[in-house]
Write a protein that binds this DNA or RNA. Structure first.
Lengths: 186, 186
DNA sequence: ATAGTTATGTAGCGAGTGCTACATGCACTG
DNA sequence: CAGTGCATGTAGCACTCGCTACATAACTAT
């Protein structure tokens, strides 16, 4: 039953590797095909056209991103919200995650322009990240669901500031953000 | 002194208008030239090559973004940090700002890929936004500088979540974020 | 064995890419 | 008036783009 024939399934990992390294927007069929050891002819044959190739690829990348998060999930919950943020930001600095992060902003830009397939992938990745963060939240947090979303907002903001060279702004913002405690009782 | 001759200065507004509408990444010389009423030949003549055209264009766009913020600046400070956030997010929903926002994520993606000229433009735009926000901060805020950066982080995170279709996540995050008060005394 | 489906190679099409060669008008200067 | 440099038009180059036509091998079903 084991054949050497190419298929979407065997192609996608190789395509994903190329895209993670060289970007998604500028990716054209021939370089993609070369990276996968085929021809543009075969990519069109297996995916129909470039757009569905990109959509399928985005879905696949979202999946392996989820898997990467699954692997990186800590066995222990954080003690404080602040630790949540620092642990996640630290994990985002890992070289493994770097390629994902660079690609992520391209996906966000694609979402902003409503490119087909982008929003679905972004949604999947965000959902996974939310789940991941929720599992990391301190056990005794007074508002785990809301707190997760609050921290997620802060983390994404910090990641963005990092990428545009304002990591200092993010850092100072986090320090001023009073994350050590949970929300104050109202 | 008034001549009809084209120049970078007369070209840039027209180019910027085109880019704000159609995006930056996929912009190629001939459509750009058409939008500016010239030929690709002339664009290269005035800018030397496409890369410096894009860099100059990014600078120009950062400038008009600054001008737009200048115009939109409120005469009154906000009363609370929460009002800061809601006023800015509301302003980001304005149609005028929409085109900037879409382009912004393309600029962020360009920063992540280290494309030449992108980081400079992003830096200029971020600096202006920080200044704008600082002017909006409540008069009696206990930590205006840190608070500005904290809110900026949150705002950018919320904008990103909006763009990928997780505006609900951002909204719930903001509600859980305890922004009504300043930082609690430690 | 024959017919049909599936997978692949070769070649190329028409459109678009950034950029250049070349010619020409035009204003200005000697 | 000759010369010089700037601004612009026309044409095209070498290349890449997504995609297709066509041939053909390999396997499968009858």
């Amino acid at each position: 039953m084991q054949t050497n024939t190419l298929s979407r399934e065997t192609l996608l990992p190789l395509l994903a590797a190329h895209v993670l390294q060289h970007g998604l927007g500028g990716a054209s069929l021939r370089p993609l095909a070369k990276a996968a050891g085929t021809s543009d002819r075969m990519l069109i044959y297996h995916f129909g056209n470039k757009q569905t190739l990109v959509s399928d690829l985005l879905q696949y990348i979202a999946d392996i991103y989820s898997a990467a998060l699954e692997l990186a999930i800590g066995e222990t919950r954080a003690q404080t919200r602040e630790e949540c943020v620092t642990r996640i930001l630290e994990q985002a600095r890992q070289p493994t995650m770097q390629a994902f992060l660079v690609l992520w902003w391209e996906i966000v830009a694609g979402c902003a322009r409503d490119l087909p397939g982008y929003k679905d992938a972004a949604d999947k990745m965000m959902a996974k990240q939310l789940m991941w963060l929720e599992k990391l939240m301190p056990e005794d947090d007074p508002d785990p669901a809301g707190g997760t979303r609050y921290l997620m907002t802060i983390i994404e903001g910090a990641l963005m500031l990092n990428v545009v060279g304002h990591s200092r702004t993010a850092q100072e913002g986090l320090m001023a953000g009073d994350l050590a405690s949970g929300p104050s009782p109202s």
